[in-house]
């Protein structure tokens, strides 16, 4: 059996997604529709898991939970869908359990499925180690490296992975920052356990897993003071981030006097507006360094 992965987002994928998806959904869901429809033409079977939770006592964004249903009822002629429910909120082994069952439905033996799961885990942990050495996923995928710049030129880039690592959607943000002479730090570079520790200090349990990732990472770097500024990338209309973003912004600006920039993305975002904001933000940081 051959596994086909959709190509990096491009104009066609975005246009396809914007046309097909519900008007009210956020940009990442529209992009996801675009990828699914692009794949659908060339495959016999589509893997669209119902992602509910990646870790105990947390939820991933609710749009992921509804994704298989949204796709099923989109009215497009789609190949067979495989939609295992992945929910680690209550049961730790929900992921391997559901994935192995999905593999068995496709005709694989339990042994083969479990071996694949085991191998995937190993690959993932190798990949995470590389991330924690200070590489972004794009550096690893395209064998690039962070610019060699002064140690005080670090920016913390916060956002959901599908926004900050999709170069089409964010108009090459990471490269723009590299070109201006900044190293980019993302939540993936910290050990998850450390992020958890910091996020656990919130007065109330934050149950959005991506929100925990952002808050925990921001707390760490605000305490350490090893970054010159924070850029938070959000999708227009993101519910969880509207609260998490406010929390981050208040902490950064009011408690730590840390330069903070909120960048909102949607399909209408023009490159001009994004560049203007990023340039002004970097000017602001450099102005501080001078005086």
């Amino acid at each position: 059996m051959e596994v086909v992965v959709s190509p990096p987002t491009d104009k066609d994928i975005l246009d396809l997604g914007v046309m097909a998806a519900e008007q009210e959904t956020c940009l990442p869901v529209k992009v996801c529709y675009g990828h699914i429809l692009t794949l659908a033409k060339n495959v016999d079977c589509l893997f669209v898991p119902r992602l509910i939770s990646c870790q105990k006592d947390t939820y991933i964004c609710p749009k992921f939970m509804g994704l298989p249903d949204m796709i099923k009822h989109s009215g497009y002629n789609l190949p067979q869908l495989i939609t295992p429910t992945l929910n680690a909120r209550e049961r730790r082994n929900s992921w391997p359990h559901s994935l192995v069952r999905a593999a068995r439905e496709l005709g694989f033996s339990r042994r083969m499925a479990e071996a694949a799961w085991y191998q995937a885990r190993q690959e993932l942990s190798l990949y995470r180690k590389k991330l924690q050495q200070g590489h972004t996923p794009l550096d690893i995928l395209f064998s690039r490296c962070q610019p060699d710049v002064a140690s005080d030129h670090n920016l913390l880039l916060l956002g959901h992975p599908y926004n900050i690592f999709d170069e089409f959607v964010n108009m090459n943000l990471i490269n723009q920052l590299y070109r201006r002479g900044y190293r980019v730090i993302t939540p993936e570079m910290l050990p998850p356990r450390l992020i958890e520790q910091k996020a656990a200090k919130l007065p109330k349990h934050l149950f959005w897993s991506l929100g925990r990732l952002l808050v925990g990472t921001a707390s760490h770097y605000l305490e350490e003071g090893s970054v010159s500024g924070i850029i938070h990338v959000v999708s227009f209309g993101c519910g969880p981030d509207s609260l998490v973003g406010e929390l981050l912004e208040r902490r950064a600006k009011k408690v730590s006097q840390m330069p903070f920039l909120l960048l909102t993305l949607d399909e209408h975002t023009g490159e001009g507006g994004l560049i203007t904001r990023v340039e002004a933000f970097l000017d602001m940081i450099e102005w501080r360094h001078v005086s």
């Binding site: 227009f236 600006k253 006097q257 330069p259 903070f260 909102t264 949607d266 209408h268 507006g273 203007t276 904001r277 002004a280 933000f281 000017d283 602001m284 102005w287 501080r288 005086s291």
Partner: peptide
């Protein structure tokens, strides 16, 4: 005399 924060209209 230093810019410390800014915002621009979005949508």
């Amino acid at each position: 005399g230093m810019v410390i924060d800014f915002a621009m209209n979005t949508v």
